[in-house]
């Protein structure tokens, strides 16, 4: 039963994460926190952090992590299979159509229509993570009293490094982890 749930959840994540990279993130958050009580918001943030620092697609990383926590190694295999299954079918079907009719106009249209929505959903998931970093909870609080200034400072530094100096995400992660540890030890 739990295996079927894992398979179906990650099948949906694989099926609806369109646009690559971070498009899977809001879907993972939806499935493993809201639909199923598999991870806490902090654990979700942890796996996004780990995924950022390890090779491999975010969805596969999350599938393995959630699968293992919920049902051990078999769970990880089932969740990963669920994640890859839709792609196997759709990619080969689309390749067939592409070679038959030469052109991806409709598919490109679907993608173009989706892009603004995907950006919005990544923004929403990103906002949850930012709120967690700043306030220790997933939605913005009414008053800004409990703000974690170390996090705010690191966020500002990291964003500046990314936007102004085109720093690599993995370097930003390593430095913010090191600076964070140092700051928390000092203050």
């Amino acid at each position: 039963m739990i295996f079927l749930e894992l398979l179906w959840s990650f099948f949906q994540i694989g099926l609806f994460s369109i646009g690559g990279g971070y498009a899977a993130m809001p879907l993972i958050q939806h499935q493993v926190i809201e639909v199923h009580p598999w991870l806490t918001m902090t654990q979700f943030a942890d796996i996004m952090t780990i995924a950022e620092m390890t090779p491999g697609p975010i969805a596969i990383n999350a599938a393995t992590f959630v699968g293992i926590r919920v049902a051990g190694l078999p769970g990880a295999l089932v969740a990963t299979a669920g994640c890859v299954l839709p792609a196997c079918v759709i990619v080969l079907a689309l390749a067939y159509l592409y070679y038959r009719y030469r052109g991806l106009t409709t598919v490109k249209g679907i993608l173009a229509g989706l892009r603004p929505a995907v950006v919005a959903m990544i923004a929403s998931a990103g906002l949850s993570l930012t709120a967690l970093a700043f306030f220790g909870q997933k939605s913005l609080p009414a008053d800004l009293g409990g703000v974690n200034w170390v996090s705010v400072g690191l966020f500002a530094l990291a964003l500046a490094a990314l936007r102004l100096f085109r720093a690599k995400p993995i370097h930003v992660m390593l430095v913010s982890g090191a600076l964070g540890t140092l700051a928390y030890l000092l203050f």
């Binding site: 952090t49 990544i122 990103g126 930012t130 170390v150 996090s151 964003l159 990314l162 540890t181």
Partner: peptide
């Protein structure tokens, strides 16, 4: 402590992605 520091980093990485895509 390290995870908390890196969480701020992840938030910034995603913010950067959203700004670029937006």
């Amino acid at each position: 402590m390290a995870m908390n520091g890196m969480l701020a980093g992840v938030a910034a990485v995603i913010c950067d992605v959203v700004l670029t895509m937006g």
